[in-house]
């Protein structure tokens, strides 16, 4: 399942609030922050956008 492009309207970089752009190479989709250049994976149409300093609660 591909990413819903309307999401791009509302998504922003969790680290620096920069704008997000979408790219697809072959089957691999990804998002990239225009400002800090961080790249985010997209798995089954779901963007994985955790802030760098995110810590899982154990």
């Amino acid at each position: 399942m591909a990413l819903d492009k309307t999401l791009l309207e509302i998504l922003a970089c969790p680290d620096c609030r920069g704008d997000i752009t979408y790219s697809k190479r072959g089957k691999k989709e990804s998002l990239k922050c225009l400002k800090c250049k961080r790249v985010f994976e997209v798995k089954n149409g779901i963007p994985i956008m955790l802030p760098k300093d995110f810590k899982e609660e154990n």
Binding site: G18, D19, T21, K32, L34, K35, K37
Partner: peptide, 9 residues
């Protein structure tokens, strides 16, 4: 081009 795009936005 990414910084250019961000500045435009």
């Amino acid at each position: 081009e990414e910084s250019l795009a961000q500045a435009i936005l």
